[in-house]
């Protein structure tokens, strides 16, 4: 019994030390410049959306219906994101824009191309083929599952 108590006390002391150290780390850690990051995210994200809006207006003026135009716009933006990743520009935008470059669908394309391109040397099956879905995989999995659940709930409520 005494030994067990000793162990607990030791553990408690270790926890205290760790907590104390964690606070010390927090105090010396350089802070994110949150305001600047947010401004850049706003500008970069907003600009990407404006480019999307220009494409959307163009496709609608070419006589496409609203839903088709939206789909073609998404495809075009994916193309741009993938292309800019290929020529090594998108990671530079990402450094500046942060979430502003991750959240638009161009960022989704970036997260598909970047790992696939880098793992090409590991082969076309488990390199490119598998790595295309490093980030896209989870996105599709959770997107499809939730939308399917919503559909079922909607069906049951009808």
């Amino acid at each position: 019994m005494v030994a067990v108590k000793g162990n607990n006390e030791q553990q408690q002391e270790q926890e205290n030390q760790r907590e104390e150290y964690r606070l010390l780390v927090e105090s010396v850690k350089p802070k994110h410049n949150i305001l600047k990051n947010c401004v850049m995210a706003f500008l970069v994200g907003g600009t990407i959306c404006v480019i999307g809006q220009l494409f959307l207006d163009f496709f609608i003026s070419q006589g496409l219906g609203e839903r088709e135009a939206a789909a073609v716009t998404a495809g075009t933006m994916v193309f741009l994101g993938a292309f800019l990743t290929g020529i090594g520009v998108y990671d530079q935008i990402g450094k500046i824009g942060g979430a502003g470059s991750i959240i638009p669908i161009t960022g989704f394309a970036n997260s598909i191309v970047a790992p696939a391109m880098e793992y090409k040397r590991e082969g076309f099956l488990f390199g490119v083929g598998a790595k295309l879905f490093t980030v896209a995989g989870p996105v599709l999995v959770y997107g499809i599952i939730t939308s399917c659940l919503i559909g079922i709930i909607y069906y049951l409520l009808q």
């Binding site: 350089p30 990051n37 990671d91 991750i102 960022g107 970036n110 970047a114 391109m117």
Partner: peptide, 17 residues
């Protein structure tokens, strides 16, 4: 980088630490 973090062409911000 590829073993421990992200692919180099992925647009992510490196934290200051």
């Amino acid at each position: 980088e590829r073993q421990f973090r992200f692919p180099v062409e992925q647009g992510v911000q490196r934290p200051a630490t």
